[in-house]
Amino acid sequence: MKARTMKRHLLDSFKSMKRNGWMTLAAVSAVTVTLLLVGIFLTLLLNMNKLATDVEKDVRVNVYIEKVATEDQKKALKKVLEQMDEVDHVELKTRDEELDDLVGSYGSNFSMFQGDDNPLYDKYVVSAKEPTDTAKIAKEAEDLENVTDVSYGKLTVDKLFKTLNTVRNIGLVITIALLLLAMFLISNTIRITILSRSTEIEIMKLVGATNGFIRWPFLLEGAWIGMFGALIPIAILTGVYLPIYSKFNSALTTASFSLLSPSPFLYQIGGVMLAIGMIIGALGSILSMRRFLKN
């Protein structure tokens, strides 16, 4: 195709949108509403997923050290723990620090255990690279020397992982269903605008336009409708997400959780919505014309 013809198709698609005024507006609004729904759900789901991952990462193995262990033995133990493949990092928490935590959470009643009366053990807090390896690490750590006990809240953790997985799967199903719904709604709206123009297509064929020539402006028009339909939801989402992020994220961060940072996330979801809008718009338009183009 000549560049001149492509330029013609481009101009034609804009002209057609302008002259189809209300029809274009209706189609754009339909896309807007659909993509807004998709955008909101995607944002919720992806953030839920992020929080779930954070929760998983927060799961750690407590390795309690025997009271009789010497400083050297403790260091050796730390080294062994750090050298495990699954281990991300190891942190020492002394019995005094733990007692302080207890006093902090449960009140000064516990301060009677200060000093040598402290019944708690020193412990290493071990974080796994992959949260699912937690159990494995715990098992290996149990057999190490100078370890008196290992805990990671077996039942709770197993349950948590199971729940999070279910949440993720449900989220995935909802997302896919929504995407399908969006495809259906957008291509249907565009289909209606094209149905109203079947005579136009017939006339184009009568004056000798090839199917390709007829198709291009419609394809572009569908893509623009999808694009314009995506812009408003992107703006709304950005406008709502930024304040929510700045309000809640600082609170969450203290608990070592965080929402998806707006900088890549809003661009990503914006890109996804633009792509969905434009691709489905163009495809919807091509597919709905198909039967008018048959000879």
Partner: peptide, 16 residues
């Protein structure tokens, strides 16, 4: 067919 139609002009009762 489109190439044929470029050599055959058509005029209709309802103008089209």
């Amino acid at each position: 067919v489109p190439y044929l139609r470029r050599h055959v002009g058509v005029v209709f009762q309802d103008y089209k």
